[in-house]
Design a protein around this nucleic acid. Structure first.
Length: 437
DNA sequence: GCGATCAGCT
DNA sequence: CACAGCTGATCGC
């Protein structure tokens, strides 16, 4: 296969088929309602939600990929004109509704693109995925793994969502007379809300657009837009801050719950925190990455007694994450034993290269060599292209989207040149050669 | 004027 | 630090 035939979460011109893993904003950047570049493959749930994100989108371009089934598409080599068949399967990514990983097989070999995913290896859901992957790859090795390396660092350690959900519930039940606001995005963390609703036998308020999404997802009697019927509200994360909580507390005692895998999520509130010596601190410390992760439920305010002190009086951060933690990534890689790995999130301060941590788990002998090459060339990279030897001796490439991450600290001149390079990339770099990466 | 893209922020 | 995603500025047709 030549370059530009297949794109995943990447929406530049030049591919014959386009794959979407899920509908979060950083994976659909570049996709517009006027899309005409080619067929777009996605899961059934994503297809159902699609018109909300892209009203007026030509739905005849959407191809639904059923989870757990092999699909195929014939692709044309732009230079030789010969055709080749791409086989692909979607596997539940356990991230947000509709999120899938894609397993590709073709003359280029076997590639798995996880997109954003959570691999709670002990859960029943992950067992299904494990079985599916085992069955789909029983006779082949995985040549390339594109991995959600959001938390690909041993410092990222957090419990399963089941455990985190119990922590959230415990906080709510320990504040029986408080209003509760929970920060959520436009998609994701539905299971947390469903769990709260089920156990507490209460409806949960959501904003009108979110209610529409809940209805499309099939949740009809659980959510409401009437504030009078419940003390629990799920609110947009961007509306969730110290000022909002302080404002709410002038009217009614209210606590906020921030479900996030980011260990520093609570710190972002510190800048605006107004210290009060009278009321006790309510925020959970963020040491869950060391102790709470291993305890069943620990939701007592300040239960872990962080030495650096208190955070906000109203906001609890809970390690409820839709991305895999480091140990889960490790298990995933051990399970798949890929020949090579590449992160789908480009470099940032604490997200290091998957090859650095998992290179020894790969089957390639030259892991360190590859890493050296990568470190030299990755700074300005946005677009990933896989190049693999096929069983037939030709080289193939596939264009893949990369998440954009905030830039690091650079000197002014380096920063400027990097901005320029990044800008050029965002305007669409066409990959012609096989990437040595 | 409008949609697409980007910077900045949380 | 930045999960995902908003707002407002700017670009380009």
């Amino acid at each position: 296969m030549e370059s530009g035939m297949v794109s995943v979460d990447r929406w530049c011109a030049g591919s014959q088929v386009y794959f979407l893993t899920h509908l979060h904003a950083d994976h659909i950047r570049g996709l517009t309602p006027k899309w005409t570049r080619g067929p777009l493959y996605c899961s059934r749930i994503t297809a159902k939600l699609f018109p909300i994100k892209f009203p007026g989108f030509d739905l005849s371009l959407i191809r639904i990929v059923e989870i757990g089934h092999w699909h195929s598409v014939s692709l044309l080599s732009p230079s030789s004109g010969s055709s080749t068949i791409l086989y692909f399967m979607a596997i539940d990514a356990h991230h947000c509704p509709g999120a899938v990983m894609y397993l590709f097989r073709g003359e280029f070999g076997c590639t798995l693109y996880t997109g954003d995913f959570r691999w709670e290896s002990t859960s029943e859901r992950a067992q299904t995925g494990r079985t599916m992957l085992l069955k789909a790859m029983q006779d082949v090795k995985l040549d390339m793994l594109y991995l959600d390396n959001t938390y690909c660092n041993p410092t990222y350690c957090f419990p399963s969502r089941e455990v985190a959900a119990r922590q959230v519930l415990s906080i709510i039940t320990s504040h029986p007379n408080h209003d509760i606001v929970i920060a959520v995005d436009t998609l994701g963390k539905e299971n947390l809300l469903l769990y709260i609703s089920r156990v507490l036998k209460t409806k949960i308020w959501v904003w009108p657009e979110r209610l529409q999404i809940m209805h499309l997802l099939g949740f009809h009697d659980i959510f409401t837009t009437k504030t009078s019927v419940t003390r629990i509200r799920a609110v947009p994360r961007y509306s969730f801050n110290i000022e909002t909580l302080e404002g709410l507390n002038t009217m009614c005692p209210t606590i906020g719950i921030m479900p996030s895998g980011l260990p520093w999520a609570s710190k972002s509130f510190r800048g605006k925190e107004k210290l009060s010596s009278e009321s006790p601190p309510l925020l959970l410390d963020n040491r869950w990455h060391t102790d709470i992760a291993t305890s069943s439920t620990s939701s007592k305010p300040n239960g872990g007694s962080l030495s650096s002190g208190r955070y906000d009086h109203y906001i609890y951060t809970i390690p409820y994450s839709d991305h895999s933690c480091f140990s889960e990534l490790q298990k995933f890689v051990e399970f798949l034993k890929p020949t090579n790995i590449k992160g789908i999130v480009s470099s940032s301060a604490s997200n290091v290269d998957p090859l650095y941590h998992f290179g020894s788990l790969c089957r390639i002998q030259q892991a360190s060599e590859l890493l050296c090459q990568r470190l030299k060339s990755k700074r300005y990279e946005k677009v990933g292209v896989i190049g693999m030897k096929s069983p037939f001796g030709c080289t193939s490439t596939m264009q893949l989207g990369r998440k954009r991450r905030k830039r690091q600290n650079f000197s002014a001149s380096i920063h400027v040149s990097r901005v320029r390079l990044l800008r050029r990339e965002r305007q669409g770099v066409k990959i012609v050669d096989t990437d040595p990466d």
